[in-house]
């Protein structure tokens, strides 16, 4: 026991080494002259007016649309109908009261939109749909990486290959299954569907991370008499936190932002924000005061999570695509 813990502790010291493995591609060694060279190049590039202009144009194109809708979401309904959001700055400068949170109030609690209850649905859908596949994938990834069983490689390739199956191809039969089991339209169907769809990528990614853990650590624990379950919890888990965070963000964004699965599997009582907001865009396309507020209500949580854990997200992105 103590040795296992010790091994894990030693592993934590090595976690930087694992970190380096995790964050592909490795930074190349740079000679001092290389650094100077790059600095010179960077200066040259900055003073290049074309490069700056291109960077500025792209940056503006990527921000203005969001900014416009954000401004709109805090304008009174009548103003939104009457004039463009860009006029707001002149009015604000003239000292007129142009901002209010009324739209958010209407979108969240108004009887016709009632987004607060869809917000709850999004939450209820997301939590299990993130935790369940990660847990299953962690166990399976450990099995594929560290248990030597017959047919392992073929099975792993099969799981890997399932990644290319488009979700669309599974929806109709899955829905029939749920109807036959008399659970259609409930949260259970959405949880189960998301969990199954997430597994191939999750197993593949986590398997790659687990393979990177030094075999000597596992050996040491085994010599100490630890079984697979103990190794899994006491050696692997502490080292895999970054990997779990990376995939966790993927899955969170995927589930929270998903439209198709929830639309097909869910019902009026289980639809998440995305379904309701997309529906509003169709049925109340002109009501920009609730639509703009609704869009931002659906975006606020993923944006917070994303900004907070961006580091892990980038790592996962690089590991997944470069290795994959």
């Amino acid at each position: 026991m103590s040795t296992v813990a010790g091994a894990a502790g030693a592993a934590r010291d090595k976690s930087e080494a694992v970190d380096a493995l995790v964050s592909t591609p490795p930074e190349p060694k740079r000679t001092p002259s290389g650094i100077n060279e790059r600095a010179r190049k960077a200066k040259a590039r900055l003073s290049n007016p074309w490069a700056s202009a291109i960077a500025l144009i792209i940056a503006l194109l990527w921000t203005i649309p969001t900014f416009g809708l954000l401004v709109t979401s805090v304008r009174p309904e009548l103003d939104i109908r009457r004039s463009g959001w860009w006029t707001v700055f002149g009015d604000a400068f003239a000292g007129e009261g142009v901002f209010s949170m009324r739209n958010y109030e209407a979108a969240l609690f108004g009887s016709s939109t009632n987004l607060i209850s869809f917000f709850l649905n999004s939450f209820v859908i997301t939590l299990p749909a993130v935790v369940i596949p990660i847990t299953l994938a962690l166990l399976a990834a450990y099995g594929f990486a560290w248990i030597d069983f017959k047919g392992r490689d073929i099975l792993f390739v099969a799981v890997f290959a399932l990644q290319i199956v488009p979700i669309q191809i599974t929806l109709i039969p899955l829905l029939s299954l749920f109807v036959a089991a008399d659970v259609n339209g409930s949260f259970w169907t959405i949880w189960l569907s998301h969990s199954a769809f997430a597994l191939p990528l999750a197993i593949f990614l986590l398997h790659n991370f687990m393979k990177d853990i030094p075999a000597s650590l596992v050996e040491a624990a085994r010599v100490d008499g630890a079984g697979h379950v103990k190794i899994f919890f006491q050696v692997m888990m502490p080292l895999l936190t970054p990997a779990i965070a990376a995939f966790g963000i993927f899955q969170f964004l995927w589930v929270w932002n998903d439209l198709l699965v929830a639309l097909v599997m869910g019902g009026p009582d289980t639809f998440p924000l995305t379904v309701r907001v997309a529906e509003m865009a169709g049925s109340r396309g002109g009501d920009w005061h609730v639509l703009s507020a609704g869009a931002f209500i659906s975006m606020v949580i993923p944006l917070i999570v994303f900004l907070g854990l961006q580091r892990y997200f980038v790592r996962g992105l690089l590991a997944g695509s470069v290795k994959g």
Binding site: W62, N257, L259, T274, A278, L291, S298, L303
Partner: peptide, 17 residues
């Protein structure tokens, strides 16, 4: 940042444009 936004949200942003 747009990677964090749902395609539904992004569509609404652009529909307004």
């Amino acid at each position: 940042l747009p990677m964090a936004i749902s395609m539904v949200g992004a569509s609404i942003i652009w529909k307004f444009v």
